[in-house]
Every structure is written in structure tokens, then in C-alpha cells.
Design a protein around this nucleic acid. Structure first.
Lengths: 134, 134
DNA sequence: AATACTGTAATAAAATGAATTACAGTATAT
DNA sequence: ATATACTGTAATTCATTTTATTACAGTATT
């Protein structure tokens, strides 16, 4: 996860949570300072997982699909992140006793680690996060 | 952390924990199936943080710097990982109310997330991990 | 019909990660 | 002291991932 996707998603959701209107990808992109097409790509993921709603056509744009206090950051994370937090594994030598087993044990560990993070993020709602702004 | 460094470090430490002798980078590399220079690079980091000891010269190699039950996986993680788990931040528009503040709030959140993972990994020793092998 | 949007694909550019090569430095053994 | 078998590290290339950009068809509103 050496990328900017989580930051982008949270930024988008924060903007939507603090505005009544539908926001266009161009407007959002102006706030984040990235390309509108990147915003639309991110919105596409958030939308397909029921976190935001988008409207096509003139006057279209995005809005939250549910109240900010019903959006857990763990849900945002789950939508954004696919790969394990702790990274990838090697393709070790199967002729080695350790090499043969380690990936299965590493993946178990990776799962435990991911779960710990999800548990933490499950204690914070988008509304909580937005309340930190002054 | 979209890389293989944690897996490599754990693999190295597991090998060292399950062997009496000093292991050469070439031997370790054979088990992980990567280049010996990469192993030495990883060992260099582990060594500079007191997790392993290395010996130069003929018959040299690496060994654990302390017993496996005194090496917490959180320590390994701390040594390997520099960047926040949840990724990078954008460089948002400072003229936007949200844009101006979000990075500071995101970084707080990133710290909380990192801490949750460290807490989890702090409950597992290298010895625990090795015991999972049959 | 004009306008202002989204959705998405294709491509290019930039950043990051990994492999490889090379070689100076060092400890051991003969 | 010389040969040997290592480490440490830098430099380079190669591969992969991430981000930016462009383009344009499709859609809702006026």
C-alpha cells in the first residue's frame, strides 16, 4: 500500500460529508490537487461498494450514499486495499524445510495483521474523522 | 509497504533461529530464492538495529543477536518499515478548508493505525512464529 | 441542440522495488 | 604471507507499480 489511494478516498469522503450538494470530480480534484480522472476512478470504487452515489449528466456529481456516522473507516480501507499490509512474499526454495512452509505461515501472520488494523479502523466513523476538523 | 522486505527479514530470522551455526548470505539466499546481495542488504538493516550479528571474513555469516523468544515481531516490523502502512498523502490545495487540514489529520490516523499493528505484532515473538513450523 | 457532467480505456511518465555485478575489505587456515 | 571464503556497499540495470494525462462515448439537464 505504498500509494495515495486511502488518502484520496478519505479526502473525497470528507468533502462529501461536509457538503450538502453533489460535488463534481473537477471540484474534488481541485481540492485534492490531482487529476479529475483519478477522482472519478476512486469514486468508481467507492460507488461500486455502496459508499457514495454518483449521478451522470449535467449537474451530476457525487454524494455520500449514507450518513457519515454510518461509514466506518474499516469499510473504506477494505474497499481501497487489496494486498496485505505487510507486503508480498518471496517464492522460496521448496527443497528447504523453512522455504517450503514459510509462505503459509507468513500469510497467516499477514491476515492477523490486517485484522488488527481493520479492528482499529472499525472504531472510527467518517463522522468521527470529520469532527477532528476545526 | 508493497514489497518483500518483511517476508525476507522474517525468513532470514527464522533460518537463524532454527540453526546453531553462522549462515552465509549465499546459503540464506538459496533458501529464500533471491540474490545474496539482497540478503546482505537486509542483514545490514537487521544488524544495525541489534537483531542479528554478522561476522566478516572466511567462515563468517550471520546469527541471531539474542534468543528468539526475546525478539518481538514488532521490533522486526519497526526496523523494516519506514513509511506509514496506510500509504502516502496527497499535496492538497491549501486554499480549501479541507485541503488545508487533511494531511495533519490523516497523519494522526496513520499513526493510530501503525500503532495498532505494532501492538498486535508485539504479542508475537520470533520463537512463537518458529513454533508454527512443523 | 447545447452544455456539463460521468465512466472508462489507452497511453505515457514517474517513482519504487529488485536483481545483478563488481570489488574493496576482512577474518581464517595453511 | 598467501589463498580462500566470506561481508559490506555502491553502481547499474531491469521490472513493476503508481500516477498523470488524454480522449471520447454516454447521459442528464436546460
Amino acid at each position: 500500500m505504498n500509494n495515495v489511494q486511502f488518502a484520496t478516498a478519505i479526502h473525497i469522503l470528507t468533502l462529501l460529508a461536509t457538503t450538502e450538494e453533489h460535488l463534481s470530480s473537477a471540484y474534488i480534484a481541485g481540492s485534492i490537487n490531482i487529476n479529475p480522472a483519478m477522482v472519478r476512478k476512486s469514486l468508481s470504487v467507492l460507488s461500486s461498494h455502496g459508499l457514495v452515489e454518483t449521478r451522470e449528466g449535467k449537474g451530476g456529481g457525487a454524494s455520500l450514499a449514507k450518513p457519515a456516522d454510518q461509514i466506518l473507516l474499516s469499510a473504506v480501507y477494505a474497499v481501497i486495499n487489496t494486498a496485505p499490509l505487510l507486503g508480498k512474499t518471496n517464492q522460496p526454495n521448496p527443497d528447504c524445510l523453512v522455504g517450503r512452509q514459510i509462505n503459509s505461515h507468513l500469510l497467516d501472520l499477514y491476515r492477523e495483521a490486517d485484522q488488527a488494523l481493520i479492528n482499529k479502523l472499525g472504531t472510527i466513523t467518517l463522522a468521527n474523522f470529520c469532527n477532528r476538523f476545526k
